[in-house]
Simulated scan of single mutants.
Amino acid sequence: MLIAQVSDLHVCAPGQLANGVVDTNAMARAGLRAVAALQPRPDALLLSGDLVETGGAASYAHLLELLAPIDLPLYPVAGNHDEREALAEAFGGRAGPHTARLPGFWQYAASLGPLRLLVLDTVVPRQGHGALCARRLDWLDQRLAEDATPTVVAMHHPPFATGIGHMDAMGLLDGAEALEAIVRRHGHVQAILCGHLHRGIQVRFGGTVASVCPSTAHQIALNLLQSSADGYVMEPPAFQLHLWHGGRLVSHTVPIGDFGGTQPFA
Rank of each mutant, 00 (worst) to 15 (best):
A4P: 03
V6A: 14
H10C: 02
V11F: 07
A13E: 13
A18Q: 05
V21C: 00
V22I: 12
V22K: 02
D23F: 00
T24A: 08
A28F: 04
A30E: 12
A34G: 00
A36V: 03
A36E: 04
A37V: 03
L38V: 02
Q39K: 08
R41Y: 01
L47R: 12
S48R: 06
G49F: 11
L51C: 05
V52Y: 03
G56Y: 04
G56A: 10
G56Q: 11
G56C: 12
G56R: 06
S59R: 06
E65Y: 05
L66F: 06
L66V: 09
L67E: 07
I70P: 01
L72K: 08
L72Q: 06
P73D: 02
V77H: 10
N80H: 09
N80T: 01
D82H: 11
E83Q: 14
A88V: 03
A88F: 05
E89M: 06
A90G: 08
A90R: 12
A90Q: 12
F91Q: 08
G92A: 09
P97F: 00
H98M: 04
R101Q: 10
L102A: 09
P103W: 03
G104L: 07
Q107Y: 05
L115N: 10
L117R: 06
L120H: 05
L120C: 05
D121E: 10
H129T: 07
G130V: 02
A131H: 05
L132C: 03
A134V: 12
R135Q: 15
L137N: 10
D138C: 10
W139Y: 11
Q142S: 15
L144T: 14
E146C: 14
P158M: 06
A161Y: 13
G163W: 05
G165W: 14
H166Y: 15
H166K: 08
M167N: 12
M167L: 15
D168R: 11
D168V: 07
M170F: 10
G171D: 04
L179H: 04
E180S: 12
A181K: 12
I182G: 09
R185K: 14
H188I: 10
A191N: 08
A191H: 09
I192N: 09
C194G: 12
G195Q: 07
L197W: 11
H198M: 04
G200P: 15
V203G: 04
V203C: 13
V203D: 06
F205E: 09
F205C: 08
G207M: 11
G207R: 11
S211Y: 13
I220D: 05
I220S: 12
L222C: 01
L224R: 14
S227M: 09
A229E: 14
D230E: 15
A238S: 06
F239V: 02
L241Y: 04
H245N: 11
L249G: 13
S251V: 13
V254R: 02
V254D: 02
V254W: 00
G260P: 01
T262E: 11
T262G: 03
T262D: 07
A266N: 12
